[in-house]
Design a protein around this nucleic acid. Structure first.
Lengths: 148, 148
DNA sequence: GAGCTGTCTGTTATCTTATAACATATCTCT
DNA sequence: AGAGATATGTTATAAGATAACAGACAGCTC
């Protein structure tokens, strides 16, 4: 196995046309999209079947250009375009508004550190850390009735 | 609506036969079970269809007797039998071994506090907090090859 | 006890999410 | 051209979840 030059994992290029179409749809979306919603939006690009979308999503996630929101079985474009030193792709955290469906990406570093600390204390070696919160965003909190 | 006496939300009673069957299966399981795996295990109790299992699961989760692991689309019995003052049911955290499939429940309070702090700083009102970690458990770390 | 109401239960059908498996194309290096 | 790797297209199916309707049963009121 000769060490091939890696096919440019930088943001824009290095992606196939399917990847770019899927990423564009995610980036345009107002909130998280299910894989089949993405599929609907990329049909005019010629994509027709779920595996095409899922493959693109898996690649984008691998490159840190998109995230999967586990509690929604849905996907979003990464808010940073691409993760750099400060924020690791596997240390993103989401707050999800139950009312308007918005998902905001925040830096999970402090929360992930606390979680990881508890896990390593038990001898666990931590890979990915998933942190997701459900509740009401600022706008919906203002509009919605509620305690205090 | 007259205020009925609530049907005893304590651990044991207050549950229907289906709930108890499902809870027993989860409690016996070595790891998280998918809803259809639970269904297979409760067929000899007469349960035949997915909605029966899902209904029981939703009730158990509502009572804090079981948890849903979002990243696995699977379910576990609560490690505490039932949550008391110290550990809120919606503040449980799981570490999931990618190798042996074990899921260990830990107190998410510190991690959840850090996460919630970041969210409330953005004006978000937090309901449920989901913290899940993927990696290798102590046993599998010992056996598996790896850095370090 | 007839009738109402609410909860739990059973059952069918369907919807959503995700992947396996296989075929085809494309690119690069030699 | 031929070999190997990567990306893509396509069909079928697995896996997860719920909608919608029907029946059973308890407690209550009149």
């Amino acid at each position: 196995m000769t060490a091939r030059p890696p096919p440019d994992t930088r943001a824009g290029p290095g992606l196939g046309p399917n990847d770019r179409a899927v990423l564009a749809v995610l980036a345009d979306a107002k909130g998280p999209l299910g894989a089949y919603e993405v599929l609907d939006q990329v049909r005019h690009h010629g994509l027709k079947a779920p595996p095409q979308v899922y493959r693109a999503l898996h690649r984008l996630i691998g490159l840190g250009l998109a995230h999967r929101i586990e509690s929604l079985n849905a996907f979003v474009a990464c808010a940073h375009g691409r993760h750099s030193d400060a924020v690791r792709a596997d240390r993103a955290m989401f707050v999800i508004c139950d009312r308007c469906g918005a998902a905001v990406e925040l830096d999970a570093t402090p929360a992930a550190a606390a979680a990881e600390s508890a896990a390593t204390a038990k001898g666990f070696r931590v890979g990915r850390v998933i942190v997701e919160m459900k509740g009401l965003c600022a706008g919906c909190t203002a509009e919605a009735p509620g305690p205090g």
